[in-house]
Design a protein around this nucleic acid. Structure first.
Length: 362
DNA sequence: AAATAATTCAACCGCAACCAC
DNA sequence: GGTGGTTGCGGTTGAATTATT
């Protein structure tokens, strides 16, 4: 007897998500918070399996996600962390809170691996006489031991930092605020930890913009839906024009309500946010213009409390406050030259390269 | 301009870990 | 401790996009 499928295979939609589906999902999570994914498809009417919903949320709809355009700083961190942790993408992603594991994994596989291989070939040809191949095998041999050692070392550091009362709050040392600990680094966009819904709306708006922008070229599915998004919000009636044969949305009212609630969230607590999402004259969403209004949410204690309760506790990303403080790790990662020797001794980094060497690649 | 090859990345799949009972 | 259900993770796939011929 084989393993039972994770969800009913029949009637489950696969493939790219449509705007309506995203809106339904976001508005549902806005109301109920992430988690209990099993219940999501049944409660929302989405013809998706729970896994698919979770994945869509964590990788694309979740607030605070930055997509594409990896900075050099991020590249370096990924390379170092990959050397340190291996293909533990979730762990790596926890140090780049704006990036998803999937994104990092893809970026590694498509860009960085190639880049490193090229460089490695160069290194090999430069010093063929060196024992690079033999050292590689040595490294793979004891890699798990070193990884364990590293984990222990990091845990110790985390504990030390957690116990030292005079240190700045760990959130202040989070990767988002790395400009403090690493002044010469490119300044990263701060993550909006307390504007979850707003950020989510922002994400959705960005997606919608992309959908609209790419509509003529997109897939048959997207093609069919792209038309629907050429409307002037809030005249959402276009959603109801969704072809039932698409099977993506059974109830136009649901989408309407979903969108309404999405863009008018928490209006009872914060009336000035109720119209935080607007549309320009061309019918495009303009989240940028509304950021100021949206982020006023931050000051609303009720809202914050609600957010912390519903979103953050169950967020798939590790809680930054309980995570290994970034001061140490970041210094460690980015101060390539200062402690290279000690690091090499400690880690014996994989890929047959030292930390110094991986840094040299860039 | 068309055909083909290469690349990218969103999404799927299967497994393992976790949790409640 | 055993079992079943759920979630999270990493590897992989394949459609869409971009580059090249």
């Amino acid at each position: 007897m084989g393993r039972p499928p994770c969800c009913e295979k029949t009637g489950v939609k696969k493939g790219p998500w449509t705007p309506e589906e995203d809106i339904i999902l976001v508005s549902y999570i806005q109301e109920h918070g992430p988690g209990n994914w099993r219940a999501v498809p049944t409660n929302t009417g989405l013809l998706r399996c729970s896994k698919s919903c979770r994945l869509r949320w964590t990788n694309y709809l979740r607030p605070g996600i930055k997509r594409g355009n990896f900075t050099e700083h991020e590249e370096k961190m990924i390379i170092h962390l990959q050397a340190l942790l291996g293909n533990r993408w979730a762990a790596i992603a926890s140090y780049l809170p704006q990036r998803t594991d999937n994104d990092i994994k893809n970026y590694w596989n498509t860009h960085l691996k190639k880049k490193l291989n090229k460089k490695l070939e160069g290194h090999d040809q430069e010093g063929k006489s060196s024992s690079s191949s033999s050292s590689q095998s040595k490294i793979s041999k004891g890699q798990w031991e070193r990884r364990l050692q590293t984990d222990i070392h990091m845990a110790k550091q985390a504990l030390c930092e957690a116990l030292s009362l005079d240190t700045t709050p760990s959130t202040g040392d989070s990767p988002n605020n790395n400009n403090n600990s690493s002044p010469n680094l490119p300044v990263q966009e701060p993550i909006q930890t307390s504007t979850t819904y707003a950020s989510s709306a922002d994400n959705i708006a960005k997606l919608l913009q992309n959908w609209m922008k790419n509509s003529p070229k997109s897939s048959s599915q997207s093609r069919s839906t792209s038309k629907m998004w050429s409307f002037n919000y809030p005249s959402i009636a276009a959603v109801s024009s969704s072809s039932p044969s698409e099977g993506t949305i059974n109830n136009a009212t649901t989408a309407h309500e979903g969108l309404d609630s999405l863009f008018n969230f928490n209006s009872s607590n914060n009336s000035d946010v109720s119209q935080s999402m607007s549309v320009d004259e061309g019918g495009n969403f303009t989240p940028e213009n509304n950021n100021a209004a949206i982020f006023q949410v931050e000051s609303k204690q009720n809202f914050k409390a609600e957010m912390n309760g519903s979103f953050h506790q169950e967020e798939s990303k590790p809680n930054l406050e309980t995570q290994v403080p970034l001061t140490f790790l970041e210094k460690w990662l980015l101060d390539d030259n200062a402690n290279a020797q000690a690091q090499e001794e400690l880690m014996g980094i994989g890929m047959g390269m030292t930390l110094g060497e991986t840094a040299d690649l860039f």
